[in-house]
Structure formats: structure tokens, C-alpha cells
Amino acid sequence: MERKLLKTLQSKHFSQILLLLILLVMGIVLSFLSPYFLTWSNFYNILDQTSVDIILAIGMAFVISSGGIDLSIGSVLAYSGIMMAFAMKAGIPVPLAVALGILAGMFIGLCNGLLISRLHLNPLVTTLGFMSIARGFALILTNSSPIFGFPNAFKFIGSGRVGPVNVPIIIALVIVIISYILLNKTKWGYYTLALGGNEEALRRAGVATHKYRTSIYIFCAMMAAIAGMITVARLNSADPLAGWMVETDAIAAVVLGGTSLSGGRGSIVGAVLACFVLGMLDNGLILMAIPAYYQKLFCGLIIIIALVATELRNRKEHRNFG
């Protein structure tokens, strides 16, 4: 009996199934508590708000699956957004400005990746450093005040619609599909998980592990930069303080979604579902007029619980393999 329960708990899709159940229960409870919850416009609102979180969580899912972590995503989000804003203000065409902003973000990822993979620096502290560096850049460049007013073509990315669907939702959906395929069907995804599972084994199998590890940080930074693009376009404002503490939400979503904090296991679907859970929680708290700060508290708790669970699981595995 206990064994069976343990097996279910360790099953690959357990987290995802649990998240679906949580979503369902939350949905039912919230629709009783608030007459506004179960409306199409509210549902659509959640979807729209969550799209940026999903993109951030996906980048984080790759990094955590590979046994790393990236605390710099919130700062990269702001910094990339500001680079785009500057480029557009300088009269550079929108697509080029967007590309420049995303490349600027990816450069931070490259720095993170090279230091972590080549010099074997601690990912937590390295990305903490770049979190401060990128935020510092964003504040210095803007003199700490937001930049407003962008071309319509750019604003379309944040608030435009294709048919009935908001552009950010479409971008998030495309990224989810591509990332799912990348993680589960390509060599890059296989090596991401192998890096998290046993980096030395992968190296001994003749794989240039440092290149793959670096590319994962670049990918994560690219996701943060895309999130920055959407944020700036949506608000029509590039705020140097944008994306403050989004890394906690992203990490919480990733671990809640069943990605192992010690690496080797990752789930895109789980991360997406977890973003919806957190998004719905946010939404529910607002509808019930409870300060949204409670959501931060909840995210922090999830991270700590996931850490404890990972530690206990690792101990058990160590006992098994002596």
C-alpha cells in the first residue's frame, strides 16, 4: 500500500496530474467565491497575464533540468526591454530593434553560460551577479525612469490580436510547442537532461558538455528577452524595474511542474500547468480583494517545499545505490 503510494508519487506524470486537479479544484472554489471568476473575459485575462510567466518558466525549466539555475531572468527582461526601447527611439526599424534587444539579453546568457560551464563557477552566485549587473545597466541607461511611447507595429506585439487571440498568447503557445519538442525529441533536450543527470557521464560519452550548458543559459536569457519584449510592448513603457522578482515565480512554477531541482528531469507541460495555477491564484486573490503579496509568499513556500522533497528523494536514491 505504502509502496504503491510511493510509486504514484514518483511517477513521471504525477505532478502534472496533481496540477490539473489543483486547477480544477481552484476553478470550482473560485467560481463559488466570486461571480466574476467564471466569465470568458476573466479566463482570457488569466491566459493573457500568464503568457509572460510561461515564457520565463520555460527558459528556467531548461536551466533547472540541466542542473543549473538562473536568477538573472528578471533583470534580463528589463535590460532587453530597455535596449529595444533605446533602439526604437533612435529610429531603428522595429524588427531590427527587437532583434538587437533580444541579442543583448542573449549576451548576458552567454556570459552566464561561459562562466558556469568553462570556469565551473557556481550558477546561483554567477547568475546572482548578472542579475545585479543587468539591473544596474537598465537603471543607469534610463537614469531609473521608464521610457514611453513606441511605434504601433511594436505595441502590436503586446496588445494586438490575431483574430480573437492576443499576440502574447500566440507567442507563448508557439514557444511552448517548440520547447516541448526541443526538450523531449532533440539531442539538445536529451543532453540538457543528461547534463542534469550526470554531466561527467555525458562528457565521457564524447559530448562537448560546456557548449551545451552554455547554449542552455543563452536559451533561457532569450526567453527572458522575449518576455521583456512583450512586457514593454504591452505597457508601452520600458521600465528599468520591470520583471522584479519574476525569477521566484519562474522557479516555483518549474519545480511545481515536476522538474527536479537537482536536474535530470524536466517537464514543459508541468511548468505551463503550474504557471496557470499561480496565475489563477493571483487572479483569485485579486477577485477576493486579498493583497497579491500573498502570491509571493506562496511561491517562496513552494520553492522550499520542493527543495525539501528533492533532498529527501535524493537521500532515498543514495540509499538505494549505496
Binding site: L193, G197, L202, R204, G264, F321
Partner: peptide, 9 residues
């Protein structure tokens, strides 16, 4: 000797 396997795969 340590087999160099990825246990979670």
C-alpha cells in the same frame, strides 16, 4: 568502474 550512466534516463 562508476558505470557513467545517467540514472534518471
Amino acid at each position: 568502474q562508476d558505470l557513467s550512466l545517467v540514472n534518471c534516463r
